[in-house]
Design a protein around this nucleic acid. Structure first.
Length: 468
RNA sequence: GCUCCGAUGGUGUAGUCCGGCCAAUCAUAUUGCCCUCUCACGGCAAUGACCAGGGUUCGAAUCCCUGUCGGAGCACCA
């Protein structure tokens, strides 16, 4: 099987579907899969030189390693050779009709005058195309199919056209005569030995178009499955590489890994495992109708992967400072993980005042349980320690909330899909290393991106929010 | 206009080929209860779907027709 991306940027979440499915099938049925960059349009779908590696990196993040990697732009001579053979068989002709002219003839089921040229002339003109004698738009090579075919989309389609703009890859920059996807892909799929093709419904007619080529060459066409488009809820930004690139260009997004961007790099930075995405994608199956993937499915998968191994911490967002009174304990020692007492506890000094999330501030004379510390009554703008037993929590009389000391907490900047959040975390968070995951209790899972003091000019720990 | 394709709960999916075991599977989401010093994890429960209408049949989610809705192609894009 193959994954044939157009290298025009790093992958968005939807791109994960192809490797997820074919990679999973490969593992299940002892198969083989390659990545083939279909970079045969240096102009309208101009490849981005950095995208080749970016895509391979995204693939690695998802947990797959291709058995081989190809670039169509390395293989022009192969395509030319097959075109020559096709011309010899009388299966193609050079055509200088304008797109409009031809389209009109074609829609009426009429052949253009160039269709009946003899193979020799066609070959000569094709060699001129390769030599770059023509300018863009002057000449194309068409595959002779059936000009009266009931589906107009299949009638005498273009196999090669002239493009004046040089290819961005230096190795391919000399070519001017480029194959269209249907020709390139058809030849490659056979030569590479692809047995099964999965592609989008936008390419529904491709197999039928390419079938004419396979018939000329006497080849057998691979099995094809078409699937619909995937949409993902939870994002304001469209899943389109060019749209995302534009938003980055004009500064609305910080980059491909901005948490608001629906890209794999973004999910990766938030600490979501590739496996969680792959499982969600394979769960979509391969139906031909369009599907909506709920981000909550990816989150649920990820939570299952990381919950047991992720330690707990406190983070208070936009904290309100409240003084403490009544001689509470000096320090709280909640466990690092409630299901794993053996991992030990964290030490959180209480100090004279704490920060609470505004929504957690109790009503006047109301009681609240600061987790790990004890029960307090909110009186005269201060929290007075009541010394009550944990039973008040067990009885459900008092709500348990998270908190941090006002003095000894560490500043945190947490980037989320909905914008940045600033807050303060318990002291231990300052010692966490980059890439560690934490669960901020009652807030959610997050990935430590940059430890305190390491970010440029910032004392704050930089974290990326993953999900609840 | 011409040509393809599709339609199962909020979302995804199984079942459709070879009609009965489907008063429809599983997951996720939502709600409630239990557990818990987290609104995490875990346990239990509830809500919730075969696009519509005809036909064939003893019997239709499954086969046929029509309609409705949705998607795609008819590019010198991929």
């Amino acid at each position: 099987m193959r994954c044939a991306p157009n290298p025009n940027g790093p992958w968005h979440v939807g791109h994960a579907r192809m490797p997820a499915v074919i990679g999973t099938y490969k593992d299940r049925y002892d198969g083989w899969f390659c990545v083939r960059f279909d970079d045969t349009d240096p102009e309208t779908k101009r490849p981005d030189l950095e995208a080749y590696d970016a895509i391979l990196e995204d693939l690695e993040y998802l947990g797959f390693e291709p058995d081989a990697t190809y670039r169509a732009s390395d293989r022009l001579e192969t395509y030319y050779d097959h075109a020559r053979k096709l011309i010899d068989m009388g299966g193609a002709y050079t055509c200088s009709c304008s797109g409009e002219e031809f389209s009109e003839l074609k829609n009426d089921g009429n052949a253009c005058p160039h269709r009946e040229k003899d193979a020799e002339t066609v070959l000569e003109e094709f060699e001129d195309m390769i030599a770059g004698v023509y300018d863009s738009g002057e000449m194309v090579l068409r595959v002779k199919t059936d000009i009266e075919h009931k589906n107009p989309a299949l009638r005498d389609w273009v196999a090669f056209r002239m493009i004046d703009t040089p290819h961005p890859r230096e190795e391919a920059s000399g070519y001017r005569c480029w194959p269209m996807l249907d020709f390139q892909s058809a030849i490659d799929d056979h030569l590479i030995g692809i047995t099964h093709i999965i592609r989008g419904i936008d390419l529904q007619d491709s197999a039928k178009r390419q079938g004419f080529l396979y018939d000329y060459f006497g080849w057998e066409y691979p099995e094809v499955v078409h699937w619909g488009h995937v949409q993902i809820d939870a994002y304001d930004v469209t899943m389109s590489t060019s749209t995302i690139a534009e938003l980055i260009e004009n500064g609305e997004l910080d980059g491909w890994d901005d948490p608001r961007a629906p890209t794999l790099k973004s999910l990766r930075r938030r600490g979501i495992r590739g496996e969680a995405i792959v499982d969600a994608m394979t769960g979509l199956g391969t139906s031909t109708s369009d599907v909506d993937l709920a981000m909550s499915t990816i989150y649920a998968n990820n939570r299952e992967l990381i919950d047991e191994e992720t330690d707990r911490r406190f983070l208070v967002r936009d904290g309100t400072e409240v003084p403490l009174g009544g001689s509470p304990p000096d320090e709280a020692n909640p466990p690092l993980h409630p299901n794993h007492e053996d991992r030990g506890v964290r030490g959180i000094p209480a100090g004279d005042a704490v920060l609470l999330e505004p929504a957690d501030l109790p009503d006047r004379e109301g009681r609240i349980w600061l987790k790990g510390l004890g029960c307090f009554r909110y009186t005269r703008d201060a929290l007075q320690y009541t010394g009550e037993d944990l039973d008040v929590v067990r009885e459900g009389e008092v709500d348990v909330v998270h908190w941090v000391p006002a003095a000894e907490s560490v500043p945190v900047r947490m980037r989320t899909m909905d914008g940045d959040v600033s807050g303060r975390a318990e002291p231990g968070v300052a010692d966490l290393a980059a890439d560690e995951m934490v669960q901020f209790e009652r807030v959610g899972f997050a990935r430590i991106d940059t430890p305190s003091g390491e970010a440029d000019g910032s004392e704050a720990v930089l974290a990326y929010y993953a999900h609840p």
